[in-house]
Design a protein around this nucleic acid. Structure first.
Lengths: 414, 414
DNA sequence: GCGGTTTCCTTCACGACCCGAACCAATTCG
DNA sequence: CGAATTGGTTCGGGTCGTGAAGGAAACCGC
């Protein structure tokens, strides 16, 4: 910091996992690129130290990457230059090398975000979700329209996105690019990646929305410096994602981890999946809503639907309405039970709660966290801390965009 | 099979994972060795095809491994020689290259098994567990005594074991070689691997007993040809292990997956861990026993303890005793709930039930499996099949020995 | 200002690893 | 017996990454 230099490129703060993935035999070229991206502005010497490789290799490969237009040397020193000796030259990802998009489909609205290769947001867009369950054509149309909006917002022309990541609820076969089942879709086993890829003119990567949220934490959020953590998402349903050894874990079959339908009660409450005792049937918004209708009887019930109803319930509970409060209290207790099960089965270093619908803070109040702690057996170690990330809108789309970033990176760095 | 040749070495059936581990950057030397061990008797051409490497590399590295005494060429053709062309030369692991031992410590009895490098059992030994919780000296003494027994049974001299694997209940830090907590030990955070290693004169690898059982399935059992499966163990408590991408998964903190203490009921039955609603509190033997005392009132209750009591309960249930039957029925239903949760969270290709104490078949009857299926959401795919492996005695010790085998292999093949 | 020191980066020769192509070897088929 | 077929080996070469040596750019003390 011994001199101030105006940067020609905006200084990226870095994105992507900050720690190297365990057991990943990635080529050194890519490892170097990812290290630079993770750090934002990193010198060659730092790269060599971080990856434990010789400076010679770093020089050779960075000049290669610079020549290929993936990295660049920036003015100004790296974060903490030593006071003596030759000052380091900061390397950074060349942001303009490519642009990617992330789409997030949900039952309410779809959001999209455009990123440069440094992970900086170039623009955002949002549209209401098409009503009802969709056929393939409807999905394609809506996705193309949203991407066109995004292109305008981010000043990216058509065909301007090198890759598009898509996150949607349901059972998504990520490697196969197919959606085994989704509440948004009419058809089972839809090869959506191919369909959208043809329509959008760019390779499309699919992922379950909870997994996309997990990627968002890993790439841009609270998980960047944690190697092992779980993300629990509260949206229309309940989902979760797991990062182990700094990489996203996908279930054996490539499908997501269906936390919402794990059973927390024999012969319990009825879930929309038709079974009884699912966690969702106690904590999801539709579960709260059906109890709200009972609790708020006598109020202007007929007029309140969906989110309105829940907001009213929430207000009543805060105001001390006993029935309303008991609804949230029970939901919170089941939430604690579920979180303790996650901690016991996955042993994460931390648990992150994420989702747009986390405004009902009784689901993650101090009492809930405290109850979770009580439910954990004493392992001699502190229980995993629980962090709340009630990020707004585009975060999940950014997670989907991370898929695209990863894909472009792999293609570019062999 | 066109000619019969007497083998100088016993023909090994092969051991170890039959499929290559995903994302494992193991050196080709080791990959070749492991491929040969997995297949038992494999030709160079088959190795090259299986690993998708050039025959040239296989030739070079196998001659290297043969010279080092790790592999050998055996007489007789490999399993299915083509009818035409030069007949293949079968390669096999040289069984005598080293011997390893596996120890399994439990609350009742300790078992041990000696293996050669081909995974063949050279001998077994068993001793009653030392009573009560042990200090470090007691563990060392008992382990050394059992290993001496094993040496005699397997005709292996002292210092004859190249490595020793140990499986024990509790929270085991495998990479660190420490036991964070175990019901068998007095002390927390005991660096047992170092202590035993010094005493036994060989490198010692520790693992949670359920994880060892999972390794046993992966190396010798039903998991050899499955890349993704879960193992649920029913012993004094309930444990589980998970194989993903053909390798054992360890929790974020390196500790096991505490299935037995996941909560299946808010404010449920009291568990020995002090919490309420743990799965163990419904299905473990001590949980059954305490209900048995109630159910069998009027019988010769005073005389029946432990296993006797449960055997009587089991007999009564089979004979139609209503209270006895209801105990097992409830336990079975919670078992089904737990299995469905495992399937939902880990999405394994199959679930294997293992353990010496699985003689109470109501815990894994057809009704239980059927109930598990009903509890799973319809993913459009068949639910994971459940296999029962009520193997006797030394299997868990073999899983521990697999740890040692793996360690020796890694040391030998760089 | 000017060597000495420190840190960063580059150059260059080399070794480890694995591959492709060509070739030899051992068997069956016609 | 030659052709075909399959298994295994030899050999030159490419890629990747290293260690050692040295040049480059700053600071320090005189």
């Amino acid at each position: 910091m011994n001199r101030a230099v105006a940067l020609l490129e905006p200084a990226p703060a870095g994105c992507g996992p900050a720690l190297p993935a365990a057991g990943a035999p990635r080529p050194l070229r890519r490892a170097i690129y990812e290290t630079v991206r993770a750090g934002g502005r990193v010198s060659r010497a730092e790269v060599a130290k971080a990856l434990d490789v010789s400076p010679a290799s770093v020089t050779a490969l960075t000049s290669d990457l610079i020549a290929a237009g993936h990295l660049l040397e920036t003015e100004g020193p790296a974060p903490a230059p030593a006071r003596r000796g030759r000052p380091p030259v900061a390397l950074a990802v060349r942001p303009g090398a490519a642009r990617v998009a992330g789409l997030r489909m949900s039952d309410e609205s779809w959001s999209a975000v455009a990123l440069d290769m440094g992970g900086a947001v170039l623009g955002e867009a949002r549209r209401a979700a098409p009503p009802g369950r969709m056929d393939a054509d409807t999905v394609e149309e809506a996705a193309a329209a949203l991407l066109a909006d995004l292109g305008r917002a981010a000043r990216v022309g058509p065909e301007g996105f090198a890759s598009v990541g898509v996150g949607l609820p349901g059972m998504v076969d990520h490697p196969g690019g197919a959606v085994a089942w989704s509440p948004l879709l009419l058809r089972r086993d839809l090869p959506l990646a191919d369909l959208l890829g043809r329509r959008l003119g760019a390779p499309v990567l699919l992922e379950n929305d909870a997994q996309a949220a997990t990627l968002a934490e890993l790439w841009f959020g609270a998980g960047r410096f944690a190697a092992d953590f779980a993300v629990v998402t509260i949206e229309n349903g309940l989902g979760m994602g797991l990062v182990a050894g700094n990489r996203l874990t996908r279930g054996g079959g490539g499908l997501g981890l269906e936390l919402g339908h794990t059973k927390v009660q024999l012969d319990g409450a009825l879930c929309r999946c038709g079974r009884r005792g699912c966690l969702e049937a106690y904590v999801a918004d539709y579960a709260l809503a059906r109890e709200a209708e009972t609790a708020l009887v006598g109020g202007s019930r007929a007029g309140a639907v969906g989110a309105d109803l829940l907001d009213r319930l929430h207000a009543e509970a805060k105001a001390g309405h006993p029935a309303a409060a008991s609804i949230f209290r029970r939901a919170g207790r089941y939430m604690a039970l579920a979180l303790s099960n996650v901690a016991l089965l996955f042993d994460p270093a931390k648990i992150i709660l994420s989702g747009e619908r986390m405004r009902y803070d009784q689901l993650h109040s101090d009492e809930v966290i405290e109850e979770m702690r009580r439910l954990l057996i004493d392992s001699g170690r502190p229980p995993p801390p629980v962090e709340i990330h009630a990020w707004g809108g585009s975060v999940w789309a950014r997670g989907a965009a991370a898929l695209a970033l990863q894909h472009v990176t792999e293609a570019a760095t062999g």
